[in-house]
Write a protein that binds this DNA or RNA. Structure first.
Lengths: 137, 137
DNA sequence: GTATTAATGCAACTTACTTGCATTATAATC
DNA sequence: GATTATAATGCAAGTAAGTTGCATTAATAC
């Protein structure tokens, strides 16, 4: 049986506050990366009206626990998504701003190529495509 | 004979100020993307002590003229590089913060895969690898 | 129920970047 | 070379995203 993030945190001695569980639930039910601001607004809608500072601190905490990942897209705000999604990338519609997940079949070859070309010890990579989605075309 | 950016701008009726030519020269001689702040500091070193506002406004101008490109890396500052470099990506050392250019042979296959998978009209994409460079390993 | 301390809210701060406006300086024309 | 139009600039103030200090609140252990 797989332990939930909440159970895991609890067993590590962290407190389960309404902000904490609400943010985890929100990110778990959001199928694309979202910003701190969106998290704040969406929590408010659901009745969990915490301070934006708390949202930022909780994001920092969840990052440190490797429960979520930070993502840079083309604008200035950082986005976040659950870390336990299987590895994928993103495609952003420059028109309607939709963000979709993307799986790349040829990814392993790509990584091998870069590893042998650069001699870097690569820890992570990000690949984002920008374009106009079928609906906006 | 290929016209320089300076000549091109001049023939379009834009003025060639010391800030403008210094920033173009700096970016042309810098083999990796740099931030507005770095541009500001480096200009100062060379004796072109312009206001940071001017740097930002010049960046905006050079972007609008498609002379430079804007690049998002993992941190909060935007980076800029000359747009006429042949298409490439970046690899960032998470230790010494060095940024290197990267060419990917299998890139066309990747693009074809994403195009046919998503039906997006893809305009651009960014691919960045993060890791530890050979010197820092 | 009490005690401990993690988590929170608020206000003030920082950083990256932008805007308004008065001034300066490039370059076209005389 | 002087005059002129206006692009470019500097300064100060503003914004937006994110951070920090500190006093207060509340989750959990006992």
């Amino acid at each position: 049986m797989i332990k939930s993030h909440i159970n895991n945190l609890q067993s590590k001695g962290f407190r389960i506050t309404s902000a904490r569980s609400a943010i985890i639930n929100l990110l778990e039910s959001t199928p694309h990366p979202i910003t701190a601001n969106s998290i704040h607004k969406l929590l408010k809608k659901v009745g969990t009206d915490v301070n934006i500072t708390t949202v930022y601190r909780e994001i920092e905490f969840l990052l440190s626990q490797k429960i979520i990942n930070k993502i840079q897209l083309f604008d200035t705000e950082l986005h976040y998504e659950m870390a336990d999604r299987t590895h994928h990338h993103h495609i952003v519609c420059t028109d309607c701003k939709a963000i979709e997940d993307l799986k790349i079949d040829s990814e392993k070859d790509l990584l091998d190529e870069v590893c042998s070309d650069t001699r870097y010890k690569i820890s992570t990579h990000s690949l984002t495509f920008y374009g106009v989605c079928p609906a906006c075309k």
